[in-house]
Simulated scan of single mutants.
Amino acid sequence: MDFASQGHLSKAFETFSLIQLHASSSSYDLISHPISFLLLSCTNLKSLPQGQQLHAQIISLGLQQHPILVPKLVTLYSSFDLFAEARTIIANSSILHPLPWNLLISAYVRNGIFGEALSAYKHMVDKGIRPDNFTYASVLKACGEKLDLGFGREVHNSINASSAGWNLSVHNALVSMYGRFGEIDIAQSLFDKMPEKDTVSWNIIVRASAKRSKLE
């Protein structure tokens, strides 16, 4: 499938059609990798019609629940700001891994749609899907940007109750969130307890301290 990487998407689709033609129904799962590669190419080459064509084929093949393809579909639609389509794909999925949700939540946050990011997180948890460190980092940023202190504390409690373990990005996000809320003492306490810090950590606490100086 080198055609797609060279930008020759139509040639890649022709090759895929030949593969599909010779595939039996019992081997449909084997073509999930070529489809995944094509979906990624459609995303990178900003080719929505071909991506939608692939989505239709995925449905016709009964592969719409495939754990490899669902994240790629979410990424495709999110890259075109088609968030309703991306969310519908996840909502109808039985996949219990957080990856598809992480992709959607981070896309919401990247586009400044913080309320929808928090809504997606709630939906994910309600479905019994356990968040991971990637989830928490994005959701904490959304809480901070939306200035939702109550929900931010709920997420913080969830992190403490989880078995996710130490993660620099999550702790940076926590310090940043409390700094935005003006909860400088909490931010400082979290910062002081961090077993390791990077440049981002120090920039966050400097900004929080500067905010405190303005308030005093």
Results as ranks from 00 to 15, higher is better:
N111S: 10
I89C: 03
A107C: 05
I90H: 00
Q52M: 12
L63A: 06
I95Q: 02
L104R: 00
I58R: 07
N92E: 08
E85M: 15
V109T: 06
Y77I: 11
S106W: 01
G51F: 04
S24I: 14
L104T: 01
Q50D: 13
P67N: 12
L38T: 11
L76S: 09
H55Q: 13
L63D: 10
Q20P: 07
Q65W: 11
S78W: 04
L30Y: 11
S25C: 11
S41I: 05
A86T: 14
A84T: 15
I105G: 04
L73W: 03
I59L: 14
V109W: 01
P100D: 00
L103R: 04
P98K: 00
L73Y: 03
F83R: 01
P100A: 01
I89Q: 01
L76M: 08
S36I: 09
S27P: 09
D29Y: 08
S47D: 11
P67F: 12
S32N: 11
I89E: 01
A107Y: 02
I105D: 02
R87L: 11
I113W: 04
Q20D: 12
I35G: 07
L104A: 01
L30D: 13
V70N: 04
G112N: 03
L99W: 03
G115C: 09
A86R: 06
L103S: 05
S60R: 13
I59K: 08
S94W: 09
G115M: 07
P71M: 01
R110I: 04
I105N: 02
S93P: 03
L63S: 07
G115E: 14
Q65D: 14
Q50S: 14
S25G: 10
I58N: 07
A91L: 08
L63K: 03
L73Q: 03
G112R: 04
L38H: 11
I113C: 08
I90E: 00
I59D: 10
A56L: 10
S79H: 06
I58H: 10
L21T: 11
I105C: 05
L104C: 02
Q50F: 12
N111F: 02
P100W: 00
R110T: 07
S27K: 15
R87K: 14
F37V: 10
P49L: 12
F83N: 01
G115T: 13
E116T: 04
L40P: 06
H33W: 09
L48K: 05
S93C: 05
N111A: 05
A23Q: 10
D29P: 09
L103V: 05
S36W: 13
Q53M: 13
L40H: 13
R110M: 05
I105V: 13
S47P: 07
G112E: 00
S26K: 14
L99K: 07
P71R: 02
F83Y: 04
A86C: 10
V70Q: 08
S26D: 13
Q64T: 12
I113D: 05
I90K: 00
K46Q: 14
E116C: 06
E116G: 06
L39F: 05
G115W: 01
L39A: 05
G112C: 02
E85Y: 15
A91R: 09
T75C: 04
Y77S: 07
L69C: 13
A84Q: 15
L82Q: 15
I95S: 03
N92P: 05
N102E: 00
Q52D: 11
S27Y: 10
V109A: 02
G115S: 12
